[in-house]
């Protein structure tokens, strides 16, 4: 593992090591990402891209990091790359689809969940939520319960027949735990009924 680190950093001095519990991990600047990936795939035999994801660091700058996990078939070892997005307001990243076709769906998912645009991606659309969904659910400010919005619009008759739309899910009695330092009272399931439906709408504040 040390030799990979040496080889990689000799070739790309801008690549820094990153703290990791298990596999070797590196911070890569965005402008060198494609070169580094190509080098890893062709010369160091990390031929398989197993995962692309992102982390929202909330109020830290830079706010978003895109994380890549590579797997080497010959070495049977993983490698982690982390790339920070420069802009927190409209985050973007270069797409690695040209190197690994597997990245296509993974990057679409990252866009869907975090709103990170991938440059030169062949098909930058939402993948898990529907196309018109207005929010990015895995950003830290987005509540688990969701935000009121409209259903997928393709089916207007259905919407008219049922008057259903996306309503924030009830959280009473829901997953609760005390984060260290927080008062226990905030962890308890709240008794208030929050199960709003079309027939029992949420009262206006």
């Amino acid at each position: 593992m040390e030799e990979i680190k040496k080889q990689l950093q000799e070739r790309f001095p801008a690549v820094e090591s990153r703290d990791s519990v298990d596999w070797p991990a590196f911070n890569v600047p965005e402008e060198r990402l494609l070169e580094v990936c190509r080098y890893l795939r062709d010369d160091l035999d990390y031929a398989m891209l197993v995962d692309v994801t992102a982390v929202d660091w909330s109020d830290v700058i830079p706010r978003f990091s895109v994380i890549y996990h590579l797997f080497s078939v010959s070495r049977s070892a993983y490698l982690r790359l982390a790339v920070n997005c420069a802009d927190a307001g409209a985050p973007s990243m270069v797409s690695v689809c040209s190197i690994w076709p597997a990245a296509n769906w993974h990057e679409r998912e990252v866009y869907d969940m975090f709103g990170i645009q991938f440059k030169n991606h062949p098909d930058m659309r939402r993948i898990l939520m529907w196309d018109d969904y207005p929010y990015f659910p895995l950003r830290k400010e987005f509540p688990l319960a969701g935000i009121e919005t409209e259903l997928p619009p393709e089916d207007t008759e259905v919407r008219e027949a049922t008057d259903a739309h996306v309503i924030a899910a009830p959280m009473m009695g829901g997953p609760f735990h005390a984060t260290p330092g927080e008062p226990m009272s905030r962890a308890e399931p709240r008794a208030a009924d929050q199960s709003w439906t079309e027939k029992n709408p949420k009262p206006l504040d």
Binding site: D19, S20, V21, D51, R80, T179
Partner: peptide, 24 residues
């Protein structure tokens, strides 16, 4: 810390990538 683990599941490699800042 950050950890990535893949297990050989019937459908293929099921991976979990966990970022922890400590705590539960």
């Amino acid at each position: 810390g950050e950890v990535y683990f893949e297990a050989e599941n019937p459908k293929g490699a099921l991976g979990f990538f966990i970022v922890s800042k400590g705590g539960g």
